[in-house]
């Protein structure tokens, strides 16, 4: 049985967010008290152009199940 089939399993998601848009959007979600699952961890970057493919690979390497690049 793979992990994904265990009932209480949930993915670990790393999100890279551009400071000027996606990160600001995540702040706005907070201001509006929008609720979303707690299994996402946001890493702030100054621009989506800053996101090196190496960062994404490292996240998977360290056990992340999903990576969100948003900007």
């Amino acid at each position: 049985m793979s992990v994904a089939q265990t009932p209480d399993w949930e993915p670990k998601i790393v999100a890279f967010c551009c400071n000027w848009c996606a990160y600001a959007g995540a702040d706005l979600a907070g201001l509006n008290r929008l609720q979303y699952p707690a299994n996402v961890r946001v890493i702030r970057v100054p621009c989506s152009g800053r996101i090196n493919p190496q960062f994404v690979l490292r996240a998977f390497q360290r056990g992340a199940d999903g990576v969100l690049v948003s900007g």
Binding site: R41, I43, R50, R62, A64
Partner: peptide
């Protein structure tokens, strides 16, 4: 302020 080393360290930290 956003060096490769820093962002990789952050990735490591949140993936623990």
């Amino acid at each position: 302020g956003f060096t490769n080393e820093q962002i990789l360290a952050e990735v490591d930290a949140v993936c623990l």
